[in-house]
Amino acid sequence: MKRRMLEAVRRAQADKRPAALVTDLTTGLQSLVHEDAVEGDFGFEDELLEQVRALMRADRSGTIDFYDVGYFVQVLNPPLRLIVIGAVHIAQALAPMAALAGYDVTVVDPRRAFATDARFPSIALNGEWPDDALAALTPDRRTAVVTLTHDPKLDDPALIQALASPAFYVGALGSRKTHAKRKDRLAESGVNDAAFARIKGPVGLDIGAVTPAEIAVSILAEMTMALRGGPKAKRD
């Protein structure tokens, strides 16, 4: 790898731009494929470029054999994202745990007393109302949304927005009883049964979690299961 290429890859990652580093395994030459451009040692035939972009869309690194030449494609998509509604005690555990697991975490809470840097060191805080915040953050299929406030005024608008997005995980804190009431409220806002069924509630895997940190573990575990495809799923 040329040093210039190392810097180009780091720039793309720092700017959170999707990219793929393509290595010609015969020569060791490399090019970096961006969403709208290519830079590096070699250009691409359309057919090969399309195969690279297909891997980028699938979020999957791998080798392409193209006319007897092997090209290794290192997909460098931006980090997964987690949007937490509610700068509450569980969020104080979940945010750093998810950051450690590779997520870009944003904690949303308009209540200034909760969303403070002292409570959430080095975590992005957003003081907007949850529906405005989610409209701006635009969850995609690599985003998880978790509501933790227990307050329908904050949680419900966030859930409605999240369900209108392709987020891979939508979870809501609250007991079965709370969740049943939530279903009735959201139905009045036009959320149908199929959409509501996407919400993981009560949130998290049932591991008997008691403390905020344990509940955070159960949520992160359930997010991982949603992302990776379930028990003992074969990934390769």
Partner: peptide
Amino acid sequence: MSTISADTAQVLDAAAK
């Protein structure tokens, strides 16, 4: 899906350092 790009960032940061 993969989350390895977060790891990659750390690895390349170390390389650059």
